[in-house]
Design a protein around this nucleic acid. Structure first.
Length: 933
RNA sequence: GGGUGCUUAGCUCAGCUGGGAGAGCAUCGCCCUUACAAGGCGAAUGUCGGGGGUUCGAGUCCCUCAGCACCCACCA
């Protein structure tokens, strides 16, 4: 093995090998095991892997590899999403670059073009997932627009329509005037923005219908919509205006007469207490209009210009140009009373960022309430569990107030709605035109035209857990893997995706789509900022794996910005944050970092120092393995327990390993990847490397050690390493495989050559025995060595310098232990000699460490200065005294002694005794040294 | 306006059903000891956001205040 761990040389090789050998395809469950399935949240075909994906996919892969090793029939379903609007926008941008556009290309050719683009670059993300080590079953990869999934989409649409749960209706919807499509409520992001409140005068109409000198003042944030006003509303109880209800006002600029109505939607406290009502361009006004049977006038074209319903002067003007013109005209006529600053919530499209318009159009909707009820019940019953559990509240909150879902989109890329129209405009729904015709009893002569709209992308995503398994066919995979085990996803798509999967899953399979929903947090940058291209703070996971030099990173971050003027500050920040660029950390280090940061679903700040730390951990494992191989490869490990003798150190490390195994299982069952990573890190570094490997040297370097002991040690080194590799494999697949290939043959029965760690058994609780006795023995040994190290460290004695050691007040047990563990003490403590001080003998001036009753003394002559030792003792005693006082106070409290459990009280008493004793010993020692000085 | 979460060592965060405040990184010493300097050994570090309550006992439970973050919502 090379001296230094180099991730690059091993990762790509192993992934290719695993995939070629088909390790990721589900295998029959081992006896006693079950099945396990995760559906990958399908990434957009437009996408490339970002930190959120890398985080999420690491967690999923960890679960998947863990279950695969435990022998479950395991499927991690691969696939991607057609991402209608996002993908269409990408290809349209491409066309624009060629001086072309989708309209002149035509629908059919445009869609061909999207497919072509999908084929070329749509696989970028799957390549990146491979780099991440994600053990997806690529042989079953699906796409939301492939044949099978399209069939499932049509099936669901038709069935919901037949059941009256999908309908077509004319409604006010959120309209994106750039894309010229409707979008769902969820795709609207409301942003607080600074704007104005315009106070407009609407003259009251006289008996002749002409304007009078009196007027009502309405306050509005959108003066341009006044062209579509059909009423002015006041609160019915408002003393100021009550008497005007039923009268009419002259709508300026149009000359139309509109009524004054009373409606308690109006808040008399806000603005002027008079509200202009524009049912065609405001959701609230629409509702008011319905209540009062007001006409609805649409004054906008689909791209938000003024249409022909408005006075000629404004026609064709963009909505914002129209605003200026209208305000100007009103001012000129003396009808603008005031303009005040006002912050308001502006609805923008999540894709285009454009201000949306409420717009009256024909759309398709899903009637969601009947679907939501069982979906709520499933979570209430516990058939589905959110982890962490508090997300269930968010889910309930939304599901209980859910509105119908607008599923039609006026774009081209997506599942075309399976509905056809005859020349009279009658609707025929079917799985195909032929079926629609048959079901409608239409003769062939009648021409039918399919609906031009496509479905919301989330409609097909909602079917993902069962459509990918072959539904509506009752396939073997569906039987075996549905309901799936767990969904791993971010909180941001609970409404978009999670809730809808639950609704559709229950409706069409009668079962929940998954049992657990693990919600993870957002990956932020080291300052806690959201990562985004426009902020220029994104990290590409691949750059963390392979490394990237500063110049390339700067180029990458500043290229193709929406706001090119940001480039300079982004460059500056990047140079400050990464003066050396980013070193190559390797996939395993990155994965381990994600796991270690994944605590209880809260957002994580991604810090390069953390990755570096875990890269070092990889190196640690690598070097530990080198040590083990050096000492065991080709050596005699003993063929059976007869041929091996296990010392206390061996028993100890195996006992500690068994605790670690338990902890790992417990943590992964609770989705505490951070604790899992932490438990393994601690065992490997602190116990296996820092203690056991060092302890093993005592045996292996001892020329007098028995062959059986040496075999026991060698065997244990390899055996524990093997377990460590298996335990870590789900988190760090590459380095564990690489090392395991070398380590495993040493343990294998001759003739049986294991192929891959991916399919090895995961260490299970109960495989090893807890050995309390060995743990106690080694605690004593470590205490001894730590005492010496502390003296050495605090006295600045070089680690290599052998120390003469005197032991005072050693009881029989301690004498036996010194004898039994002498080799460990000599090797790890760098002990030159040990001598027991006899009773009555007065010890020389020495630095002291306390081990129970026994005092470990290092004579100071020539080594230590007295002053420093006195200070050292004082420090220790101060600590003990504080502890002692607290304990005394506690025990002096009668209520405590009476009311606290006896166990707790006893513990405090025991503590008091040992504290007193230690303090006495140290005090005596201090006096001795002080006296000798 | 409604809801959720957060506040613990210089930084990033653990701390489960209430019983002696922890980790990593950073810092400071001593060491290139034959697995590893991407390392070893040792050290220092906290009115657990403020206040109140329950309790023998509160970082942990309850109330309250403050600050921060996020989600939802139709005040023109």
């Amino acid at each position: 093995m090379d001296k230094t761990y180099d991730p690059h040389t091993i990762e790509q090789y192993w992934y290719r090998t695993w995939e070629e050998r088909g390790y990721f395809a589900p295998r029959p469950a081992r006896p006693g095991a079950g099945s396990f399935c995760i559906m990958i949240p399908p990434p957009n075909v437009t996408g490339s892997l970002h930190m959120g994906h890398a985080f999420q996919d690491t967690l999923m892969d960890t679960l998947v590899r863990y279950h695969r090793m435990r022998g479950d029939a395991t499927l991690w379903q691969a696939g991607s999403d057609h991402a209608g609007i996002a993908t269409q926008m990408v290809v349209e941008r491409q066309l624009a670059g060629e001086g072309n556009d989708r309209i002149s290309l035509g629908r059919e050719r445009f869609i061909e073009r999207v497919w072509q683009w999908k084929a070329e670059s749509g696989n970028a993300i799957s390549g990146q997932l491979r780099r991440l080590g994600a053990s997806l079953d690529w042989s079953r990869e699906r796409f939301t627009m492939d044949r099978g999934l399209s069939r499932a989409v049509r099936e669901v649409f038709v069935r919901l329509h037949d059941d009256g749960l999908i309908y077509r209706g004319k409604r006010l919807v959120n309209w994106d005037p750039v894309l010229e499509t409707a979008i769902s409520d969820l795709e609207v992001v409301a942003q607080e923005e600074r704007g104005h409140l315009w106070h407009l005068r609407y003259p009251l109409a006289g008996s002749d219908g002409g304007p009078t000198a009196e007027y009502l003042v309405v306050a509005t944030t959108r003066p341009e919509t006044m062209l579509g006003d059909t009423a002015v509303a006041v609160h019915p109880e408002d003393e100021r205006y009550r008497h005007l209800i039923g009268q009419r006002v002259c709508l300026p600029l149009t000359g139309r007469l509109i009524p004054v109505i009373g409606d308690d939607y109006v808040d008399p406290e806000f603005g002027t207490g008079c509200v202009k009502i524009t049912p065609g361009h405001d959701f609230n006004d629409y509702a008011v209009g319905q209540r009062h049977s007001l006409p609805l006038i649409n004054v906008f074209t689909p791209d938000a210009r003024i249409n022909d319903q408005a006075p000629e002067a404004y026609r064709g003007l963009d909505r914002f140009a129209a605003r200026e013109r209208i305000v100007g005209d009103l001012r000129a006529q003396g009808l603008l009373e005031a303009v005040t600053d006002h912050t308001l919530m502006v609805p923008r499209g999540d894709r285009t960022g454009e201000i949306l318009e409420p717009y009256l159009t024909d759309q398709w909707f899903v009637r969601v309430k009947p679907l939501a009820e069982p979906a709520i019940a499933a979570v209430e019953r516990g058939d589905i569990r959110f982890v962490p559990g508090n997300w269930a509240r968010t889910y309930f909150e939304w599901m209980r107030n859910i509105e119908d879902w607008c599923i039609s989109r006026q774009i081209w890329w997506g599942h075309r709605i399976p509905a056809w129209y005859d020349p009279q405009g009658n609707i025929y729904v079917g799985r195909s035109e032929a079926e629609a015709r048959r079901r409608g009893g239409l003769p062939d002569e009648v021409s039918l035209e399919q609906d031009h709209d496509v479905l919301d992308t989330w409609f097909s995503s909602a079917l993902w857990p069962f459509s990918t398994l072959g539904w509506p066919e009752q396939t073997e995979e569906l039987r075996r893997f549905y309901p799936t085990s767990v969904l791993v996803t971010g909180f941001d798509i609970i409404f978009f995706w999670v809730a809808r999967m639950i609704m559709m899953g229950l409706r069409f399979t009668g079962e929940v789509p998954f049992h657990d929903i693990y919600i993870h947090g957002l990956v932020r940058d080291s300052d806690g900022q959201k990562m985004s291209k426009s902020k220029g703070n994104v990290l590409d996971p691949i750059d963390l794996i392979d490394g990237i030099d500063l110049e390339s990173l700067v180029v990458k971050r500043t290229r193709g910005l929406m706001q090119p003027q940001m480039a300079h500050s982004i460059e500056k920040a990047t140079r400050r944050h990464f003066p050396q660029g980013i070193p190559a950390f390797g996939t395993d280090a990155l994965r381990f970092t994600f796991a270690a940061l994944a605590s209880t679903g809260r957002d994580i700040r991604f810090d390069l120092n953390r990755v570096e730390g875990y890269r070092n951990f990889c190196n640690k494992i690598w070097n530990a393995a080198r040590y083990v191989l050096m000492n065991a490869e080709g050596q005699d490990l003993g063929t059976d327990t007869e041929g091996r003798c296990l010392s206390q150190a061996e028993r100890w490390v195996l006992s500690r390993l068994s605790r670690t195994i338990d902890a790992v299982h417990e943590h992964i069952a609770g989705y505490r990847f951070d604790l899992m990573a932490h438990a393994l890190y601690e065992f490997v570094w602190d116990e296996y490397c820092d203690w056991y490997l060092e302890l093993s040297k005592a045996t292996l370097h001892d020329a007098d050690a028995e062959p059986r002991s040496r075999r026991g040690t060698r065997h244990t080194l390899v055996r524990v390493l093997d377990s460590i590799l298996r335990l870590l494999h789900p988190l760090m697949p590459f380095i564990t495989e690489e090392i395991w290939q070398r380590a495993a043959p040493m343990l294998a029965d001759s003739g049986h050559r294991p192929e891959t760690i991916c399919l090895q058994a995961y260490p299970e609780p109960g495989e090893l025995v807890r050995d309390e006795a060995a743990e106690q023995e080694m605690d004593w040994v470590m205490g001894f060595i730590l005492g010496l190290r502390r003296i050495r460290g605090e006295m600045d004695i070089a680690p290599g310098r052998p120390l003469p050691v005197l032991l005072q007040d050693a009881d029989r047990r301690s004498r036996e232990r010194v004898d039994a563990h002498r080799a460990y003490l000599d090797t790890l403590g760098r002990v030159e000699s040990i001598r027991f001080i006899t009773r009555g003998e007065s010890p020389p001036q020495a630095a002291t460490a306390l081990l129970g009753r026994m005092k470990i003394l290092v004579p100071m002559a020539g080594l230590i200065d007295t002053r420093a030792e006195l200070q050292r003792l004082d420090r220790q005693m101060t600590k003990l005294r504080q502890d002692l006082e607290r304990t005394q106070r506690k025990l002096a409290n009668e209520s405590f002694v009476q009311k606290a459990p006896a166990q707790v009280v006893d513990k405090e008493r025991g503590k008091l005794d040992s504290l007193r004793q230690s303090l006495d010993e140290l005090q005596a020692q201090r006096e001795r040294i002080a006296a000798l000085d």
